[in-house]
Simulated scan of single mutants.
Amino acid sequence: MKSLVKITKLFLGVVVALLVVGMTTTSFASSHYKYRVTRTTFDKVSVGSNNGNGGTSLKQLEKDFGSPKLKSSRTVDNVRATMLVYSGVDNDKNAAAIVELINNKVIYKELTGYQYSL
Rank of each mutant, 00 (worst) to 15 (best):
V37R: 10
K9D: 15
N91W: 02
N50W: 13
S57F: 04
L4A: 09
L84D: 02
K69R: 15
D43P: 00
M23L: 15
R36I: 01
N91P: 08
G13D: 09
N94L: 03
T25I: 14
T41E: 04
K69C: 08
V99D: 03
A81I: 08
L19A: 13
H32Q: 03
V15T: 12
R36H: 08
G22L: 05
L12I: 10
T8E: 12
F42M: 06
S46G: 08
L61N: 03
K71S: 14
V16P: 03
Y108M: 09
S87I: 10
V76C: 04
K6L: 14
E110T: 02
S87T: 11
S87C: 11
K44E: 13
R80L: 10
G66D: 02
I7P: 12
S27Y: 13
L84Q: 03
G22T: 00
I107T: 12
K2A: 14
G52H: 05
V21Y: 06
V37H: 09
I98D: 04
V89Y: 02
K93P: 00
A17S: 13
K69Q: 14
S57L: 02
N103M: 05
M1D: 07
K63S: 13
T38G: 08
V79R: 06
N78D: 10
L10Q: 13
S117H: 12
V45S: 05
S27E: 15
T82C: 09
Y33L: 13
E100C: 06
K59A: 14
T8H: 15
N50C: 06
K69A: 14
E100W: 05
T82P: 04
G48Q: 04
L18E: 14
A95H: 01
A81Q: 03
S57M: 05
T75S: 08
N78W: 06
D43V: 03
S67G: 03
Y108V: 04
Y35W: 03
L18S: 13
K6F: 14
L70W: 03
R80D: 02
R36S: 05
R80P: 01
R74V: 15
K44P: 01
D92Q: 11
Q60F: 04
